[in-house]
Each structure stands twice: as structure tokens, then as C-alpha cells.
Simulated scan of single mutants.
Amino acid sequence: MSAAAAPLTRRAFLRTAFTAAVFGGAAAVLAPVLRARRPRQTLSPAPLGEETYRGRHISVDLASAAVRIDGRPLHVMRRADGSYLSGINHFQSYETPLELARAAVDELGTTPLALAAPHHG
């Protein structure tokens, strides 16, 4: 099993060049090997998009497109074209989960999400 080496950054390039200049050719040969042994930085989880819209708290997990309105989950589906739709109004699609959540709040008004019946227009 081989792990992919981290991409060469400017800092790594300069460190390798400096090491090669100071210690000769052997260091230049070993630098990529030593660099590959360093732990790679991992991506942090995607942040939550949170806002208050018309008095309702909306939170969107940007990594999974999970949407919550006032802490309750809103069922979200991803369409083949990359847009999103929900059970609140499944006849309209939206570019982002946040746009979809705002439209759901518009449709719900003051009705709690748990009591809302799907809209059949």
C-alpha cells in the first residue's frame, strides 16, 4: 500500500533547495522521501451555514446538505442536475440548500416543521 505524497509547496521546495545547496546531492535525493513521511494536513469538516431568517433558525451542513429549521431536520433531496428540493415544496428546485431552507420557511410561515404537511400545490 502506498500513500500519495503531499503536493510540493513553495516552502517545501525552498527547504529542499536550501538543503541540497548546503549538504550536497544526497540531501536532494532524500528530501522527497523525508517530506512524504510527514503527516499530511487533513481538511477540517465543512462549516455549518447558520442564519436566522424570518425569525426561524436555519442551519445547513455544507458537506452533506443536511438542513435543520429550528433544530428539526428538513428532508432534502439532491436532483441529477445538482439542484435541491424538499418535501415542503417538491415542485420547485433550488440551487443551494440554504435557498431551499429559506423557501421552506416562506412556505411554513409560523407552522412548526414537524406539523407541516407536504405541499401539493
Rank of each mutant, 00 (worst) to 15 (best):
A27H: 01
P39A: 10
D106A: 06
Q41P: 04
R78E: 13
A26W: 15
V105Y: 00
T110N: 12
L8E: 06
I58S: 06
A36L: 00
A114S: 11
R56F: 03
R78Q: 13
A80F: 09
A65K: 03
A104D: 07
A26H: 11
L98N: 02
F23T: 01
A117P: 04
H120G: 07
V60F: 03
V60D: 01
A103L: 03
A28I: 12
S59V: 13
R15Q: 15
A26P: 04
E51S: 08
V67G: 00
A4W: 04
R102L: 01
L100Y: 00
S64L: 09
A31S: 09
S86Q: 07
N89T: 14
Y94R: 07
T16M: 13
R56E: 02
R10C: 12
T19V: 15
G24W: 05
L85K: 10
S93F: 05
P118Q: 06
L34I: 13
R68P: 03
L8P: 00
L100P: 02
V22P: 01
A27P: 00
S64N: 10
A116D: 05
L30S: 12
H120L: 11
Y84K: 07
D106H: 01
Y53I: 04
L43T: 15
R40F: 00
A27Y: 02
F91G: 14
A6C: 06
G82T: 03
H75Y: 11
S44L: 12
A117V: 08
R38Q: 14
A66S: 14
D81E: 05
R35F: 14
E95S: 11
L48V: 10
D61F: 01
L8A: 10
A101P: 03
A114Q: 04
A66R: 14
L34T: 12
R102C: 00
R37W: 14
M1R: 10
L115N: 12
A101C: 02
A36S: 05
A6I: 11
D106Y: 05
